[in-house]
Computed example of a mutant assay.
Amino acid sequence: MNTVRTAVLDHYGVERAQIDSASVTFLGVEPIEILRIPGDGAVHYATLGGSRHPMGDPADLLADPVRGPRAELVLTLLLSAGPQAGVARSLGVLVATPLVEGVVLQADALLDLGEPLWHNAKFTAVLLGESEVPEVELPDPAEPVRYLSVTPVTATEAAWVRVRGAQALREAWTEAGIDVRDPARGAVNL
Rank of each mutant, 00 (worst) to 15 (best):
3 T>Q: 13
5 R>W: 07
5 R>V: 13
6 T>Y: 12
9 L>W: 11
10 D>R: 14
11 H>C: 11
11 H>A: 03
12 Y>D: 00
12 Y>S: 00
13 G>E: 06
14 V>C: 03
15 E>Y: 10
15 E>P: 04
16 R>F: 13
17 A>V: 15
17 A>F: 12
17 A>K: 14
18 Q>A: 15
19 I>A: 09
19 I>H: 10
20 D>H: 11
21 S>T: 11
21 S>L: 14
22 A>W: 12
22 A>L: 12
25 T>W: 11
26 F>T: 10
27 L>M: 14
28 G>V: 09
29 V>T: 05
30 E>F: 00
31 P>Q: 08
33 E>M: 06
33 E>Q: 12
36 R>W: 11
40 D>L: 10
40 D>C: 02
42 A>D: 12
43 V>G: 06
44 H>C: 07
45 Y>C: 02
47 T>A: 08
48 L>W: 11
49 G>N: 07
49 G>W: 09
49 G>T: 10
51 S>N: 02
51 S>T: 06
55 M>L: 07
57 D>E: 03
57 D>R: 11
58 P>R: 08
58 P>N: 07
58 P>S: 02
60 D>L: 15
61 L>M: 13
63 A>M: 10
63 A>T: 11
64 D>G: 02
65 P>A: 09
67 R>C: 08
68 G>E: 05
69 P>F: 00
72 E>F: 05
75 L>I: 04
78 L>V: 11
78 L>P: 00
80 S>L: 07
82 G>C: 04
83 P>D: 15
85 A>M: 12
86 G>E: 07
86 G>V: 01
87 V>Y: 01
89 R>F: 14
90 S>T: 04
94 L>C: 01
96 A>W: 03
98 P>E: 06
99 L>V: 08
100 V>A: 05
102 G>R: 05
102 G>H: 05
107 A>Y: 05
107 A>L: 04
109 A>D: 04
109 A>I: 04
110 L>P: 07
110 L>R: 01
111 L>I: 13
111 L>P: 05
112 D>E: 14
112 D>W: 01
112 D>V: 12
113 L>Q: 06
115 E>Y: 13
116 P>A: 01
117 L>Y: 03
119 H>Q: 15
119 H>E: 14
125 A>F: 08
125 A>Y: 03
133 V>N: 03
133 V>L: 07
134 P>G: 08
134 P>K: 00
136 V>C: 06
136 V>W: 00
136 V>R: 01
139 P>Y: 05
140 D>F: 13
141 P>Y: 06
143 E>I: 04
144 P>A: 00
144 P>K: 01
145 V>A: 08
145 V>H: 06
146 R>K: 14
146 R>N: 08
149 S>K: 01
150 V>A: 01
151 T>K: 08
153 V>N: 04
155 A>Y: 05
158 A>W: 00
159 A>N: 12
161 V>L: 10
161 V>N: 07
164 R>V: 12
164 R>M: 15
165 G>S: 00
167 Q>K: 12
169 L>F: 03
169 L>D: 01
170 R>D: 12
171 E>K: 13
173 W>F: 13
177 G>S: 06
177 G>N: 09
178 I>R: 02
178 I>K: 09
180 V>R: 13
180 V>T: 14
181 R>H: 10
184 A>R: 14
185 R>M: 04
187 A>F: 07
187 A>E: 12
188 V>Y: 06
